[in-house]
C-alpha cells in the first residue's frame, strides 16, 4: 500500500519512523470514564492504542465502544477483534460499524480460550480463525465485498494487523505461520511480549531469510515486569511466554520496593536491543494495568515527541 495513509499508525510506519503503540484494557463495567482516564495517560505518547477484546476471556466493555471513548480524546485506537465470541456474520457487521465510527486499525486474533476466563461454561464460536479474519478484512477493504461476495455500501478501509508469538511451539513452523498471516492480509504484526531476545532474534532472522520483514511492519511486544512474583507467575502460567531464568533471578535479586524500577530498566534495555534488530519497525508496550508507566518508558527510550 503506497497510497494515502489509512491511519496515523500506517502513516508513521510507512514513513519509516519507529512506531510506538500501547495497550488499553477496557474496564469490567460500563464506566467510560475509566477508559478515558487510561487514554489520557497515553495521549501524545504513542501513535496508536490497542484496545483489547474481552482479553483472557473476561467480560469487559466492548472493544468498539472503548475505541470510541479514546477517539473522543483524540487518540487513535487499534481495535482488537477475536473470533472466539462472534461468528462471521457478527464479526463483519462489527467491522462495518467500527469503521463507520472512524476506527481505522484492526488487530485480528483468535482469542484466549474461555477456559481461562470469567465464563468457562460459555459456548465458544470459532466459526472462522484469525487467518480467515485477516483475509475477510482485506477482502472487504480491497474488493469492497463481504465474505458472501455481496458488494458493500461503503468499504471499511482498515489498516490490518495480526499477532505473532515467536516463543510458541513448534518454533520452525512459526515463520511459516507468519508468512501465511502476511499473505492473508496482515499489514503489521504485533508480537507476544519479548524477554528472550536470542530466540526473538533467531525468529527475526528466519523471517528476514524468507523476505517477510520486507513485506510487513513488525512491532515487537514488551511488557514491563512489576514484581518478581509477577514475573515468575507469567513464566510459569502463561502459555507461550518465555522469560529466561537470569531475568527472573534479576527481578528476585532486588529489594521488593525497587522491583518495579528494575522491571522498567529491563524493559528499556530490551527496547534498546529491539531497536537495533533489522526489520523491527516499532514497539508495542503492553503495560498491563500500569498505563501510567508508558510515558516514562517512551520518554526514557528517547522516543518522544511522536512524529
Amino acid at each position: 500500500m503506497n497510497t494515502e495513509p489509512i491511519s496515523n499508525l500506517h502513516r508513521v510506519l510507512s514513513r519509516g519512523h519507529f512506531a510506538v503503540t500501547a495497550e488499553c484494557g477496557p474496564p469490567r463495567g460500563a464506566n467510560g470514564e475509566a477508559v478515558r482516564e487510561k487514554g489520557a495517560l497515553l495521549k501524545g505518547v504513542v501513535d496508536a492504542v490497542n484496545v483489547t477484546d474481552n482479553q483472557t476471556a473476561i467480560v469487559r466493555m466492548s472493544s468498539i465502544s472503548a475505541c470510541k471513548h479514546l477517539m473522543d480524546l483524540g487518540l487513535e485506537p487499534v481495535m482488537q477483534m477475536v473470533t472466539r465470541d462472534r461468528n462471521r456474520i457478527a464479526l463483519q457487521s462489527d467491522i462495518l460499524g467500527a469503521y463507520s465510527l472512524g476506527i481505522k486499525n484492526i488487530l485480528c486474533l483468535s482469542g484466549d480460550h474461555q477456559r481461562f476466563g470469567s465464563h468457562p461454561e460459555a459456548l465458544n464460536v470459532f466459526d472462522i480463525d484469525s487467518m480467515n479474519l485477516l483475509s475477510t478484512v482485506r477482502t472487504m477493504r480491497e474488493q469492497g465485498k463481504d465474505l458472501s461476495g455481496h458488494a458493500l455500501d461503503g468499504a471499511p478501509k482498515m489498516f490490518i494487523g495480526a499477532a505473532a508469538n515467536p516463543f510458541a511451539d513448534p518454533f520452525e513452523y512459526r515463520v511459516i505461520r507468519l508468512a501465511k498471516k502476511i499473505d492473508a492480509g496482515a499489514d503489521f504484526i504485533q508480537t507476544q511480549c519479548i524477554y528472550n531476545l536470542d530466540r526473538f532474534k533467531a525468529w527475526m532472522d528466519m523471517a528476514a531469510g524468507e523476505g517477510l520483514t520486507e513485506k510487513v511492519h513488525i512491532l515487537a511486544g514488551v511488557t514491563p515486569l512489576k514484581s518478581a512474583p509477577m514475573a515468575r507467575y507469567m513464566a510459569q502460567n502463561v502459555a507461550g511466554m518465555d522469560i529466561p531464568e537470569p531475568l527472573l533471578r534479576r527481578m528476585a535479586g532486588v529489594p521488593k520496593k525497587k522491583a518495579a524500577q528494575e522491571g522498567i530498566a529491563i524493559c528499556l534495555e530490551t527496547l534498546q536491543a529491539l531497536r537495533e534488530i533489522p526489520g523491527v519497525h516499532g514497539v508495542h508496550i503492553m503495560a498491563i494495568e500500569w498505563e501510567n508507566q508508558v510515558k516514562t518508558i517512551v520518554e526514557r527510550a528517547g522516543l518522544l515527541p511522536r512524529p
Binding site: F126, D129, G240
Partner: peptide, 28 residues
C-alpha cells in the same frame, strides 16, 4: 480447542494444548 483451520495458536507448548496440558496440540 479453538477449531483453528490455520493453526497452531500461540498457546501450543511442547506439543501440548494450553487448555489442558494432558491434551496433545492437534496442530502440533
Amino acid at each position: 480447542a479453538k477449531k483453528l483451520l490455520n493453526g497452531p495458536c500461540g498457546g501450543s507448548q511442547e506439543g501440548k494444548c494450553e487448555v489442558d496440558p494432558d491434551t496433545e496440540c492437534a496442530w502440533h
